[in-house]
Write a protein that binds this DNA or RNA. Structure first.
Lengths: 200, 200
DNA sequence: CCATATCTGTAGCGATCACTACAGTTATGG
DNA sequence: CCATAACTGTAGTGATCGCTACAGATATGG
């Protein structure tokens, strides 16, 4: 069978550009015209490759979470629960104010509340945020087993707490908070883990 | 001079309805058709009273923050910094999951990232979030003077921290987190203030 | 070298967007 | 009681939305 004409653009490079548009303007604030221009392709190529606007978002989210997964592994490899928390929050402060990227977090400002017809976009983002929370919870369960986290500590609550703080930092970053402000929040937040850690 | 025909709708009641639409769908996800239907008026009445869609949002935000201001006064009147934090976060958990209102916080999910032409909507929300943060900072300065907060405590950082946590709770609530989950976050968050408080 | 299959660019589809012209209605000021 | 001024409902405005029909281009399989 014939194979057809091969696509002329790099799908991953195009996704990086789409990710940036969604990141900066949110799902509903991003138009197909903006996306195609940033990606350097025409609408039919976009729809052939990704189905529709929501499919493009999911693909961009996949790429976003894949990049974060590598980073998250490093965070989770910190020796203690307290170190995990500190490293996650401090690095989050840096990432969310990195001038190479739009401010904040795509999984937060990508679309918290959407109009009729895009109701599942918020769910899509929430599901991916939940993955990070799950990883944190498991890491804290392990920390309790290893003994650096008190036996009375609530791993699920601590994971939810970190998830909430980083989301809150994303909100602040998206509206212009600078790196120092986010680091202040991170520093205060980590104190919870010092109290929940065993004495060393 | 002649005074003209009086308006036939209650502006405040109409604003309450508009607030709910913005709250649930965000600024860009809310259409004039949805807003006018919820408000029980026709587009010309809306534009005569509020100028345009963004003017309506600002009026709705004014009403939202006015309602919150009354609640915030109660929070700030708590006897100690720790009590202020606990009361604010626990009541925020309840408010953001109150079935009488859309989940979350209008000042968060109303529009974190918007498209071209609505760039100042995120700023508008951020400015109003900042007001609460300012109130908290001043309250914690007072707490240091009164002695229930350690002299080494950073009032500005603690205020920013509370602001971030409540924003993060709003993110979680908007995507379906239940009251118990938010209360867990609130409980963990308050521990920071126990460490920063003077022994009693 | 031809048939087939897929991609690309142009051009434009119907639907919906925020917004308004206009005529009719209801109040006040004189 | 009339002129004026503001509000109301109908019915749209042009612009932009997400999306696609179509024709030409470019690869593979036989």
């Amino acid at each position: 069978m014939a194979m057809g004409r091969p696509r002329e653009f790099d799908a991953d490079a195009a996704l990086d550009q789409a990710m940036e548009v969604f990141w900066r303007h949110g799902y509903e604030g991003s138009t197909i015209a903006q996306l195609t221009e940033a990606m350097g392709i025409n609408p039919p190529s976009l729809y052939a490759a990704f189905g529709n606007k929501e499919g493009l978002l999911k693909a961009a989210l996949d790429r976003y979470t894949a990049k974060r997964a590598a980073w998250m592994e490093g965070v989770l490899s910190a020796p203690t629960a307290r170190d995990v928390a500190e490293r996650m929050l401090m690095e989050t402060a840096d990432i969310q104010t990195d001038p190479d990227n739009p401010p904040g977090c795509l999984l937060v400002q990508g679309g918290l509340a959407c109009g009729t017809g895009s109701e599942n976009v918020p769910f899509e983002l929430a599901a991916r945020r939940a993955l990070t929370e799950d990883q944190l919870r498991e890491r804290f369960v392990k920390a309790k087993k290893e003994g650096d986290l008190k036996q009375t500590a609530d791993a699920a609550a601590l994971a939810r707490y970190l998830s909430a703080v980083s989301a809150g930092m994303g909100v602040m970053a998206s509206s212009g908070a600078d790196r120092e402000a986010l680091r202040q929040v991170a520093n205060v937040s980590v104190k919870v883990f010092e109290e929940q850690s065993t004495k060393r």
